[in-house]
Every structure is written in structure tokens, then in C-alpha cells.
């Protein structure tokens, strides 16, 4: 990560992120640290191989404590969505589209759909992950229409 200085005018021109940074709990630390590196990871059981979300220390299917974080495809579909109009959510200049993303790996993730107008939203539309900056130099995974 670089620190903007007076000698880098392009950095100074970029708007400062207004999005709230994630509040990181101990069990979610690996996920958000990966997001800062623009990696979208999922928690997988090292024994039975099944994915789970949100992260937790034990596999609910086989009760194994062995787990690994693997890079996800970043592909999914828009399972449900809406646009918060009132009250305007903290951290957004324009109302975002919030969505439950059905991930290719089987788990779901609440995020934003960006780069599409509300009237162009389609149920189950294919999306892929990108990253957006937050306050405090962090990043969060959001989704754009696939291939756009």
C-alpha cells in the first residue's frame, strides 16, 4: 500500500472512499484480510470439502475443526436485491443496490451490485466479483454484471 504525497497529483484527485470499513470479528479476520489483498476467499472443510458461510471454527456437516481458506471463483447470481432509499445508508453518495449473491460454490454473500441501473436489474443475473475501497484503506468484495 502506498501513501499519497504532494508529488502524486493523480492520487490526490481520486475521491476519498466513503464506504464504511468492515467491523472485523476474530472469526472473520482471514476473510477481510484477504479482501484487502483483493482476494475473495471462502472457508472450506479440510475433511469433507464443503463450503460454509459465515466462517466458523467447526464444520456443521462432519464436525471437523480442520479448515482452509480457498480462493473462490468470484462468480455468482443475484438471488435477491433492493435499493435502500430511506434512510440513506451511511457511506454512500448514491443509493447502492444491495443484493444476496448466490455464489457458484453454493454459499451466499450479501454485497452490492455495481455498474447497473436499478431498472436493469434481473433476477438471477450472472455477476462477478470486483473490489471497492472503504474508509481506513480497506477493501470489500462487490459484484458487477459478468463479462461487463
Amino acid at each position: 500500500m502506498t501513501t499519497p504525497t504532494d508529488s502524486t497529483p493523480s492520487a490526490a484527485a481520486a475521491p476519498k472512499p466513503t464506504r464504511i470499513a468492515p467491523i472485523v470479528t476474530p472469526d472473520a479476520k482471514d476473510f477481510w484480510e484477504a479482501a484487502d489483498r483483493e482476494e475473495f476467499i471462502g472457508e472450506k472443510c479440510s475433511d469433507c470439502g464443503r463450503f460454509r458461510f459465515p466462517p466458523r471454527p467447526m464444520c456443521p456437516y462432519c464436525h471437523s475443526l480442520k479448515r482452509e481458506y480457498v480462493k473462490l471463483s468470484g462468480y455468482g447470481t443475484v438471488h435477491s436485491w433492493c435499493m435502500p432509499r430511506h434512510p440513506p445508508p451511511f457511506g454512500f453518495r448514491e443509493p447502492p443496490i444491495v443484493a444476496v449473491i448466490q455464489l457458484q460454490e453454493g454459499t451466499r454473500f450479501v454485497s452490492n451490485v455495481v455498474g447497473v441501473k436499478l431498472e436493469d436489474m434481473k433476477q438471477d443475473m450472472a455477476v462477478e466479483v470486483i473490489f471497492e475501497p472503504t474508509m481506513g484503506n480497506h477493501k470489500v468484495p462487490v459484484f458487477k454484471p459478468r463479462g461487463q
Binding site: P22, P84, P89, F90, V98, F109, V110, N112, V140
Partner: peptide
Amino acid sequence: LLWNIPFGAMT
């Protein structure tokens, strides 16, 4: 709930 907050799903 905490997972939703950075995305504006906060009510």
C-alpha cells in the same frame, strides 16, 4: 448482521 453493514444493508 455485521456482514451486511459495509454494503448499505444496515436497517
